[in-house]
Write a protein that binds this DNA or RNA. Sequence first.
DNA 1: AACCTGACTCGCC
DNA 2: AGGCGAGCCAGGT
Length: 106
Amino acid sequence: MTTFDKVYEAVKLIPKGSVATYGQIAEAIGNKRLSRVVGYALHVNPEPGVIPCHRVVKRDGEVSSAFAFGGANRQVELLRAEGVGFVDGSHVDMTKYRVRALPMIL
DNA sequence: AACCTGACTCGCC
DNA sequence: AGGCGAGCCAGGT
């Protein structure tokens, strides 16, 4: 079980219609400072259709600038399709759609 | 094998 | 309040 695998596991646990921050993923796998690694993990291994990386956003709710499935705009589209609301064109309404607590990965 | 970099976050100035 | 440096892991050069 590598750190990357844990990241993927945590991301898969994000409920549909909600989003999680990189920090929350990092926290779920044991170290909140891994937030950076979380992003890199999804960057190099976006396993399309398996890992819902579009549900992962920055701490302030802004979608990442380099999205693998066709641009940040595509990510926003996917989230909207799941019922996630936005405060503007690129910021998720974190007060309503951010997951309260993400299960710890052991 | 070492060094650099990258979807981030937080603390200090 | 905004800017900068540090800390984390893996892969490429």
